[in-house]
Design a protein around this nucleic acid. Sequence first.
DNA 1: CACCGATGGTTGATGCGTCAACCAATTCCC
DNA 2: GGGAATTGGTTGACGCATCAACCATCGGTG
Lengths: 155, 155
Amino acid sequence: MDPTPRWLTSQQQVAWDSFIRMQEKLIGRLARRVQADSGMSAADYIVLVKLTETSGGRMRLMDLAKQVEWEKSRMSHQVRRMVERGLVAKEECPDDGRGAFIAATPAGCKAIEDAAPVHVEHVRRLFIDALSQEELDMLARISDRVLAHMESQPD
Amino acid sequence: MDPTPRWLTSQQQVAWDSFIRMQEKLIGRLARRVQADSGMSAADYIVLVKLTETSGGRMRLMDLAKQVEWEKSRMSHQVRRMVERGLVAKEECPDDGRGAFIAATPAGCKAIEDAAPVHVEHVRRLFIDALSQEELDMLARISDRVLAHMESQPD
DNA sequence: CACCGATGGTTGATGCGTCAACCAATTCCC
DNA sequence: GGGAATTGGTTGACGCATCAACCATCGGTG
């Protein structure tokens, strides 16, 4: 079928491996930190960030999902767990009988206020501090380029 | 407590956001592709790669875990699932009564041989093709730098 | 030899992510 | 007004990741 599969060149392989390794370790460490520091998951964290930085402090579930680019089922599960833990609450939605508003509870607000500065410190400590501003810019450019390229590609 | 938390500069924030977004989308898409193409999870894939590229085709569980930098419990669970699915088998270890060798079954070998070229194609299509070799080199350098920096940092 | 710490590995609980199926309210359109 | 398609959201099943506790064996040391 596939005469000789086109493997990556060794230079490409090196870049891919480094990137994958870095990304896994970094994300893993940050997730474990936020969990250990605040008892929240990384998912809890980002949901609360989005919720509290929106004006009005509440958002429709689908809007929330679109903001963080999750599918609705993932967000639905996440919100359910967060309701159970008292971090957010669902409110009735007057003008759409299906929908619900999601809002951070006082406990949720407190949690994110406490967690955010610590989290930023870790991001800085583990990532930002490793790189110069030129390198950060470069990485941003590269990331955007990959993102744009992916958009142009089918699944 | 913390007079004014040191937030990121907007330039730093931009770089961080781009990186996170790219990395999430890319990893997610690749994982879904390998799943859809081969029925394997990304974890299955990497375990089989490591197993089949080692001489002898079998490895102790802990060695396997160290290779991919997972903790033993994660590997143990993973191997159990893969045994259930017929991708790998456990073999007795003569010179250490505790341990087990893990080896890919014929089905596992077949699975990885089929999956690998397809996977590489996706990596190329979604990632490699988006960047020039200079950008790939740059990304590798940046990744290595972050990795090295992380090593130097406490948890 | 007997003990003790380190190593190799398993297990169970819990939370997260995905998929597919589903229900209900809404909007489109004739 | 009356379907039909769309949208908003839930649910259940399943696989993956982490944590902590646990068991068995091995290696070293007195």
